[in-house]
Computed example of a mutant assay.
Amino acid sequence: MTSPASPSESRALILERLVGDSGEAAQVIGVGRGMAERALPLLQKALAAELGAPVTVDLQVVEVGRVPEARSRAGDAFALTVVSSPTSADAMTLVMDAHAVAVMVSALFGGDPDQPVAPIERDLSQIEADVATTVFQEIATALNGSGKRSLDLRLPVPKAMSGNEARRRVLRDGAAVRIVYGLSTSSDSGTLTVMIPQRLLLSSRSGEAITGENGETTEFDWRARFSEEVMRSTVRLEATMPLARLTLGDLAAFEPGQVIELEENAQLNARLSARDKTLFVCEFGKLGQNYTVRISHPHDAGQDFIDGLMPG
């Protein structure tokens, strides 16, 4: 792996290794899911042509995680490869569990799709590793994309590792998106896990989450871009309860110590507001030693205006 070209890149690499270069989880998952779903029909078609047998591919999981977690759920026997790109030595990590390898080998060599495949409980053979490499190649090609959205992977993929080599392979820690595909026949199934570092995913694909079809930013796109930051901002909530309608003469006659009677339904018409904007109509109450308000329904400004026109 080459050294960063500048001190700023060196600092960025050190920070990424310490804490992981990550983005907002919702945005990362959204971009990852979009990429995974677009690749699904291409992958299904490519594997059908390669195997000549019916194998179903389905998208099971898209979530955030860490790169070393790629093999955490693969069991003792699995196939692994790491694909690089010009900007990253670990642009994509692919892991196929033993069940998926057995399904693909059975399909490739004409096994009966209605019969369960024999489980693999040992290190993979050379033929099994070659089959895994073929599947990894189709997966990487489908996810790589093209044009501005391309991950720019260096293909073909390296030969799949298995056994001690795969278990001892050091995977550089970092925040990633975890994509899990299911590979199945009518009688058996397995999983294939893809880990893509978030630093690479966000730099190559984040634009599709904030621009329209013609490259123009829309109102929805800006909302998606800033929503996470806005939702983390804090506001002060205030609950108020209506008293009574009085004349200015009655108000001027108030004296210290005077008790003001609440309206009959005042307790049921508390208003919850933030920054001088009424949000909800609430019911005032008490729970133990604490006073509470229970939300009844959202505030209807239009109805409130109409009610204000009615004589008191």
Score class of each variant (00 low, 15 high):
1 M>V: 11
5 A>W: 14
5 A>V: 07
5 A>D: 05
8 S>L: 06
12 A>S: 12
19 V>F: 14
19 V>M: 07
19 V>G: 10
24 E>L: 11
26 A>Y: 06
30 G>P: 01
35 M>K: 06
36 A>C: 07
39 A>D: 01
43 L>A: 03
45 K>D: 08
46 A>L: 03
47 L>E: 12
52 G>E: 03
57 V>W: 05
62 V>F: 00
82 V>L: 13
83 V>D: 11
84 S>V: 02
86 P>W: 03
87 T>E: 04
89 A>M: 04
103 V>A: 02
104 M>S: 10
105 V>R: 04
106 S>C: 04
109 F>R: 04
136 F>A: 06
139 I>V: 14
144 N>V: 09
144 N>R: 00
144 N>C: 04
146 S>G: 15
147 G>H: 03
151 L>Y: 06
153 L>D: 01
157 V>K: 11
159 K>F: 09
161 M>Y: 09
169 R>Y: 07
172 R>Y: 01
187 S>Q: 12
194 V>T: 10
199 R>E: 11
201 L>G: 12
203 S>P: 15
208 E>S: 03
213 E>L: 14
223 R>F: 15
226 F>I: 02
227 S>N: 10
231 M>C: 08
232 R>H: 14
236 R>Y: 14
238 E>P: 00
241 M>K: 08
251 L>N: 08
256 P>Q: 06
256 P>A: 04
257 G>N: 11
258 Q>N: 03
264 E>A: 07
266 A>I: 04
275 R>I: 09
279 L>P: 02
279 L>M: 13
287 L>E: 10
292 T>L: 10
305 F>G: 00
306 I>W: 08
309 L>A: 04
312 G>M: 07
